[in-house]
Design a protein around this nucleic acid. Structure first.
Length: 323
DNA sequence: CTATGAACCTGCAAGC
DNA sequence: TGCTTGCAGGTTCATA
């Protein structure tokens, strides 16, 4: 469910609540949420209990909690002295990371609970709630970023590290070290449809089905247009559009269609009203609305899901056949 | 290497 | 009132 803006809303909320907090205990209520953890629930809980959280970082749709170095003094936190592992959190389609009072009612899909002691002495829960269990948590070693730049798109400590299992994920468009020239070169190397490329998290990360469609609408491009047929200007237009739409969505607290996507305090974002095509089949294209014959948004099957576009603004490439 | 498809899950809405 | 089908903000792995 969540794409970059929604995940960043969660990351910044976690950072605000978790930096410097002590993990007192960990309770794994459903081991399926630790499917990707190599050592299993008991060792996961044991490894985290008693540790302090130094930072919360993100690349694309992946978030990770960085553990403080247990042998370093508290003053080392600010200097970026951190432990060797991070706790990766991926929300999948329906995951939530919530900060709650410990006695708050148990959520229906609560999967993992961490009891925390905050630096100012409060006791809080970090709760991982996930209806569909496509997301999860796992412990992962931190490794140097390939380019030596900070491994995360955003975090307080600009560490040149990231979890090993996130290292294949490309930088996201909001990352200060995103390489636009490399992105243009990558597009020229493939004849895949542009939306397929935008959804490939190794090319650039953070874009999912909503923001792919919204970016393509803003750039007036059809999802099936071969990447290697795009001009440099069109490639830049996509990059500009995706950066713009995700920045706007982030400012609005993300996109929420229902109670599934919420921030760490349980609040919904309001960017749904900023969407121009996604989920709007049968409605007029906002850009065509003033024309004599306005375009009407269509929904088309694409990669076992849906694509939304305006047939007037986003013409099919030559020889394109739907389905 | 690229490109599909299936698998992993639960819940909700629409249609019969 | 059921029951069935389709659909949902994602990723990974297996098969052509």
């Amino acid at each position: 469910m969540p794409e970059l803006p929604e995940v960043e809303v969660v990351r910044s909320g976690l950072e605000r609540h978790l930096r410097g907090s002590l993990i007192e205990s960990v309770e794994v209520l459903d081991p399926r949420s630790l499917r990707r953890d190599p050592e299993g629930p008991e060792r996961f809980a044991a490894a985290l209990s008693g540790r302090v959280l130094a930072d919360v970082a993100r690349r694309g749709k992946y978030v990770w909690l960085i553990l403080a170095d247990p042998s370093a003094p508290a003053s080392a936190l600010a200097a970026g002295e951190v432990g060797e592992r991070g706790v990766v959190v991926h929300l999948g389609m329906s995951g939530q990371a919530l900060i709650k009072e410990p006695d708050a009612a148990r959520e229906r899909h609560l999967r993992i609970r961490m009891r925390l002691l905050t630096p100012d002495g409060a006791v809080r829960d970090l709760r991982f709630v996930d209806q569909r269990i496509f997301g999860g948590m796992f412990l992962d070693p931190l490794v140097p970023a390939a380019d030596g730049a900070p491994g995360a798109s955003l975090s307080a400590l600009a560490l040149p590290l990231l979890p090993a299992s996130v290292s294949h994920i490309g930088r996201d468009p909001l990352d200060a070290h995103f390489d636009a020239a490399a992105f243009r070169r990558r597009l020229r190397r493939t004849s895949s449809g542009i939306k397929r490329v935008l959804l490939d998290q190794t090319v650039l990360s953070g874009i999912g089905n909503i923001y792919a469609d919204e970016s393509l609408w803003r750039a007036r491009l059809h999802y099936a247009k071969p990447a290697d047929s795009l001009t440099a200007a069109q490639a830049d237009a996509i990059l500009h559009a995706s950066t713009e739409v995700m920045t706007e969505a982030l400012a609005a607290g993300g996109t929420s269609f229902d109670a599934l996507y919420i921030n760490v305090n349980g609040e919904s974002g309001y960017f749904e009203r900023g969407l121009n095509v996604y989920g709007r089949a049968g409605k007029q294209c906002p850009r065509c609305a003033e024309l004599p014959v306005p375009g009407v948004i269509v929904r088309e099957p694409f990669m076992n899901r849906s694509s939304y576009r305006c047939p007037r603004c986003q013409r099919a490439p030559r020889g394109f056949r739907a389905g």
